[in-house]
Every structure is written in structure tokens, then in C-alpha cells.
């Protein structure tokens, strides 16, 4: 029976347990948190190898802070998302500084049903449009609409107020709509 990393206690309790030497807690946290950390880093960086590096580095920082972690002080996921955001921001700024902002486009999926192609096209179009947004708008939109976090959680990650989060996501969505308006038909949306 597959091991279920979601039914093993809270992230915070597990991190404290790991800090006290529990290998079991480390294993559960690895399985539970690495996918989230990697997924978010990949969305921000659009580069699989760099996202893996960031994911490993963020998890390493988590292991290092574990002995000082006090249950109830903060959410582990909020802390981790903040670390990933900062690590990715640093990398993106270095990339721009080196004139390497253009990263290879992801390889297209193998041809399949039309619906699958449209879904892939939509994901790709969204990814491209997101990449053109200002940094903070992009982070807020990804956290809200792709990572599925609440505004208060995003406020904690970005260290701003919830109203600022709402403003960033609203402006980001308006910019996305404008950028993608010309591709409606191509993306399978019919005129009404």
C-alpha cells in the first residue's frame, strides 16, 4: 500500500520531531514538502534543473533551522514558500544581469487528443504571459491561482498586507487578460 505522507501529523510537529532526531519525520517531510517546493520553484524559474537546485537548497535550510523551530510560531509551508521566493528572485536577478533571461521553452508534449493539446497550449501561453509580468505581481498570481494559497498566507510569504496581495493579483490578472486577449481563438475560446 502506498505510503501516505499527508496522514502523519502536522508539518510543524514533524519538523520539531526531526530536530530531535527522528528519521521518520524527515522522510515524511521530504515526501510531503519537496513536491510543493519544486513545483513552485519551477513555475517561478521555468527551468527544471535550476528549480531542483532551489528545492534542495530550500529543504536544506529547513533541516538546518529545525532544532530552533518552535511549534506554533509559524507555518512551515509559509516559511518554505518565502525561502523559495527569495532564492528564485536572486537567481532571476542574476539571470537578467547576465543577459540570460531567455530560457529554453519547455519541450512540447507528444501529440495526443485535441483537448490535451489545447490544455498544453493554454498552460504554455499562461506560462509565457506570467513570465512577462512584474516580479511581485507574478509571485502573487502564481501563489494565489496556481499554488492555491489564501491571501493571508500569501501576505505572510511576501511579507506584505492582504490588501497589497489583492492589489497585486488583480493587476496581474488584468495584465494577463490583456496579454492573452489576442490568442483567445488559438487557445480554444469561442467568440460569444
Amino acid at each position: 500500500m502506498p505510503f501516505d505522507a499527508e496522514n502523519e501529523g502536522s508539518d510543524e510537529d514533524l519538523l520539531v520531531a526531526y530536530g530531535q532526531g527522528s528519521a521518520h519525520a524527515a522522510r515524511v517531510l521530504t515526501l510531503r514538502l519537496t513536491p510543493r517546493v519544486l513545483g513552485y520553484a519551477a513555475r517561478l524559474l521555468r527551468d527544471a534543473a535550476e528549480a531542483e537546485d532551489v528545492a534542495q537548497e530550500a529543504m536544506l535550510r529547513l533541516w538546518r533551522i529545525a532544532p530552533e523551530w518552535r511549534a506554533g510560531e509559524a507555518k512551515v509551508t509559509t516559511w518554505l514558500y518565502r525561502v523559495v521566493t527569495n532564492l528564485c528572485t536572486d537567481r532571476l536577478r542574476r539571470r537578467r544581469g547576465a543577459g540570460l533571461d531567455e530560457v529554453p521553452e519547455p519541450v512540447d508534449e507528444a501529440p495526443g487528443a485535441e483537448a490535451r493539446l489545447i490544455a498544453a497550449d493554454r498552460a504554455e501561453a499562461l506560462d509565457t504571459a506570467l513570465a512577462a509580468l512584474p516580479e511581485r505581481q507574478r509571485q502573487a498570481v502564481i501563489l494565489r491561482h496556481l499554488e492555491g494559497l489564501s491571501n493571508p498566507e500569501i501576505a505572510g510569504i511576501m511579507e506584505i498586507g492582504t490588501e497589497a496581495v489583492e492589489s497585486l493579483t488583480a493587476r496581474g490578472k488584468r495584465a494577463l487578460s490583456a496579454a492573452l486577449a489576442g490568442r483567445r481563438s488559438e487557445l480554444g475560446f469561442e467568440d460569444v
Binding site: 522522510r27 519537496t34 519544486l38 529543504m59 490544455a119 498544453a120 498552460a123 499562461l126
Partner: peptide
């Protein structure tokens, strides 16, 4: 569509993370 396309960790990455722990 964007949520459905999510990077999944490789076995090697999970092993590295666990090794770091």
C-alpha cells in the same frame, strides 16, 4: 491548465533531500 502542469520531483532529488536531512 496551469495547475495541471506541475513539476514532480525525481527519485534522485528526493534521495538528495533525504540525504541532506
Amino acid at each position: 491548465a496551469g495547475r495541471a502542469r506541475r513539476a514532480e520531483p525525481s527519485a534522485a532529488l528526493l534521495a538528495r533531500v533525504m540525504g541532506d536531512a
